[in-house]
Simulated assay, not measured.
Amino acid sequence: MEELWFASNDILIDVLCRLPTKTLLGWKCVSKEWHHLISDRSFIKHQLKRTEPISGFFFQERFQWCDNDIKSISYIPVKTEGTELQRTIFDFLPENVVLLAVSNGLICCRSCFPSPQPVIYICNPVNKEWVKLQWPAPDRRSSLGLAFDPFKDPIDESINFKVVRVHQTVTDPDDSYFSFDIYLSKTSTWRRSGEICQCNHNLYKNKAIFIGGIFYWLTDGDQILMFDIENELSWLVTIPVPLVQFDSITEMCIGESEGKLHYVLISEDGLQVWVLDDYFDFTWSLKYSIALDEMERENLEFLCNVKQRVASRLTIDMTPWMDPLAFKDGLLFIRVGATIYLLKLGMMKMEELCTLSTLGPNSMISPIVLPYSMSLVPLSQP
Rank of each mutant, 00 (worst) to 15 (best):
D10P: 03
L19D: 00
T23F: 01
G26W: 04
E33M: 04
R50K: 08
R50L: 08
E52Y: 04
E52I: 03
P53S: 04
F57S: 12
F58C: 11
F59N: 06
Q60E: 09
R62C: 05
F63Q: 13
D67H: 13
N68H: 04
S72W: 07
Y75M: 05
Y75G: 07
P77L: 10
L85K: 06
R87L: 14
V97K: 07
A101N: 15
V102F: 02
S103C: 03
N124S: 11
E129A: 06
A137R: 15
P138R: 03
R140T: 05
R140I: 14
G145C: 00
D149N: 15
D149S: 09
D156C: 01
Y183T: 10
Q198A: 12
N202T: 12
L203V: 07
Q223K: 12
N231R: 03
L236I: 02
P242A: 06
L243V: 14
Q245E: 15
D247C: 12
E256L: 02
S257T: 12
G259M: 06
K260W: 05
H262R: 11
D277H: 04
F280N: 15
S285I: 08
E294M: 11
E301H: 13
L303N: 07
C304T: 12
S312P: 13
S312Y: 11
M322F: 01
A326L: 13
I334Y: 01
G337P: 05
I340V: 15
I340Q: 07
L353F: 11
C354Q: 05
T355W: 09
S357M: 13
T358W: 11
N362I: 06
I365P: 08
L370N: 09
P371G: 10
P371A: 10
Q381G: 08
